[in-house]
Every structure is written in C-alpha cells, then in structure tokens.
C-alpha cells in the first residue's frame, strides 16, 4: 500500500482528553438551567424574554464583531451564549429589552472582542455590562421586582421594593421586614433573575464541581470569607450571617462569575488569594459602602488583580531548589553592610 503523503504527521501526544471548549461552555449552560427555571416561577414568563434577548444579542454581537474584524468565527464555542445567559441572570425581570440588548453588546463587543476575544478579556464581560447598566439606568436596576409565586404570567406590575440586601445593615442588624431565610434559600424574594434562588444555583454549582469544570476553591473560599466576616461583624448573629451568604448575588457570583477561567488565577494558591480578596471587598462594600451589594464590584476588582496574583503565585518546578549562590551573595552583602 502506498502510504507516502497520506499519513498524518504531527507532534505528540496523539491522543487527547474528551474535554473541549464547547463542552465546557455547554456544561456551564446546563448548570445554569435550574436557576433559569426557578426564575420563571419566581418572576414570571417575562424572564424568558430577557434571557432570550440577552443570549441572542450576545451571540449576534460576537458573530458580527468577528466578521467585522475578519477573524475566525467563534460562536460555535458557546462562550458568547454563556456570557449572554449570565448577563440576563444579573438583570431584573422587568428590564426594558433594548437595555438588555445594550448590555449584551457592551459585554461582547467592548469587554470581550475589543480585547481579543475568548481568553483575553481582563474582567468578566457579563459583570462589567451589569455595572454599566447599573450606572446608566440606576432606577431600573435597583427597583428589583418580585411578582409572587401566584403570578406566573407576562404582566410585570409586580411589587417593586428594596432588594433584600437593603434590609440588613451593620447598625440595625437584620430588619424585621426582611424575607425569611427559607424564602432567601428558595429565592422567592426580589432581586435579579438568576441570583435569587440559592438552591437552584447550588445544584448548578455542584454540577460544575462534579464535572470538574470549576475547582471548589474559589466558591468555598469566597463564600467562606463572607460568612466569617459577617458572623464577626454581626456579633455572632447566625441568621444575619446566613442572610448575607444567601443574598446579594453571592452564590451566583461565587460559583459562576468569580470562577470565570479568563479572569481568575490558574494557580491553586492564587485562587485562594483571589477568592478571599473578593470576599473581603464584598463585605467592606456591603457593611461600610453606600451600595447595598458588593459582589459585582469585588469580582471585577479581583479580576484586575488576577495577572499579578498569578505571577506572584507562579509554581516552582518539580524539585526546584533555590540557587545557593544568590543566598550566599546576599548574606555576604548583608555582612558587608553591617560592617560598614
């Protein structure tokens, strides 16, 4: 059999794992489904419209920007769909749809593609878009809605009220108007689409950990830090601590936003530093800032620190021993300095 020029020749290895970028993104989408279903029950059918607009706009924006830049098409890796989905989950259900679309465009075009596309954005696109929308349309974003479980429908004359995080403060503790912990756990409170149902988000987060898409370090360290600081700040008030953990988008932030590969450190120790830092900033904003919640800002700030954390925690290669010369030279120098 003549085989010349028929055989494939490339560098080893010649086999590979089953993991693909598309597969990973698909896993994230699957993990977000429970929270999506919960939001439809909590906020009504309009959430579906918000999700659809956010996802479709994100994918379209990615498609058009790649086309405009004459680069290889990347919508197939599903990362744009994930960004759209996460953005939708961070918006209230009564958000005007054109604003939702604007958010997706900001996330994909400005934050992601202008910096080079997947793997190159320096902050989480969905979170930055949320912050832009929050600054541009503050009334709309803070008037969180809660339609009530019996109002599954298209109409959105829902009860608008303060977000749960506005009902807890360092001075007065947990307000008596605040929803119960059970309500916070199930998500039957006011808030953004996907952030309210802790149980649905935990199911998704657990799925990601089991599928080894994310490492448990970031969610555990992030939520742990917030819990620890809260219990100290509220002088051992267990209810206040749980309330702080379940509210304000911490669960979705810790499992889905802070774990974004591109904007979190790849080293293990770096992940700890990053997550603890995010927890600290979240608590500082919540307890002392004028904003009721600090998850988005804390993650964005730690995103910016990520390259530095990563280079500080760069692993030493197997069997690495510190070069002795430098040590000796240093010691010699120190001695000389001491003498003089």
């Amino acid at each position: 059999m003549e085989l010349k020029n028929k055989l494939t020749v490339n560098a080893s290895p010649h086999v590979g794992s089953a993991d693909t970028t598309t597969g990973i993104m698909l896993d994230v989408i699957i993990a977000l489904i429970p929270a999506g279903i919960a939001s439809v029950f909590i906020f009504g059918a309009r959430t579906l419209a918000v999700i659809a607009v956010a996802v479709i706009t994100a994918v379209l924006a990615e498609f058009l920007s790649r086309k405009a830049m004459k680069r290889e098409q990347t919508i197939g890796d599903l990362s744009a769909a994930v960004t759209g989905l996460l953005l939708a989950y961070n918006l209230p259900s009564n958000m005007p749809l054109w604003q939702v679309a604007l958010g997706s465009i900001i996330a994909i075009v400005v934050v992601k593609q202008m910096f080079g596309g997947i793997g190159q954005n320096f902050v989480n696109p969905a979170l930055l878009a949320r912050i832009v929308l929050m600054s541009a349309f503050p009334g709309r974003m803070s008037a969180a809605t809660f339609a009530g479980l019996n109002k599954i429908g298209w109409d959105i004359d829902a009860v608008t009220g303060a977000t749960p995080m506005g009902l807890i403060s360092l001075e007065s503790g947990l307000s008596s108007d605040a929803p119960s912990l059970i309500e916070m756990f199930l998500g039957t409170t006011s808030g953004c689409l996907g952030e309210v149902s802790a149980i649905a988000l935990l199911i998704g987060g657990l799925y990601l950990i089991i599928r080894k898409v994310i490492s448990p370090i970031i969610p555990v360290a992030y939520i742990g830090t917030v819990a620890l600081i809260s219990i100290i700040a509220f002088k051992g008030d267990f209810n206040a601590m749980i309330y702080e953990v379940l509210g304000g988008g911490l669960i979705i932030g810790a499992f889905f936003m802070a774990t974004d590969y591109t904007t979190s450190p790849i080293t293990k120790s770096g992940k700890w530093i990053y997550a603890i830092g995010a927890g600290l900033i979240t608590c500082i904003i919540r307890l002392f800032g004028s904003l009721p919640e600090g998850v988005s800002f804390s993650i964005i700030i730690m995103n910016i620190f990520t390259p530095h954390i990563e280079s500080l925690t760069a692993p030493k290669p197997f069997g690495y021993v510190k070069p002795e010369k430098k040590k000796k030279e240093k010691k010699a120098k120190e001695k000389e300095e001491a003498k003089s």
Partner: peptide, 27 residues
C-alpha cells in the same frame, strides 16, 4: 485519533494542573 479543533486558550489551567513537573505550559 481524537482530533480537536485548535482554538484560542481559555485559561482554564488544565495544562498547569496536568503538568507533573509543576510548569505552566500555557504561559
């Protein structure tokens, strides 16, 4: 033969995790 389409790095860190000698291949 498993042929994966080459795409941009997503910084997932799987390479660094897999490296038995503690290197960071993506970097």
């Amino acid at each position: 033969v498993r042929i994966k389409k080459e795409r941009d790095c997503i910084r997932c860190g799987r390479c660094a995790e897999a490296c038995p000698l503690n290197l960071m291949p993506s970097k």
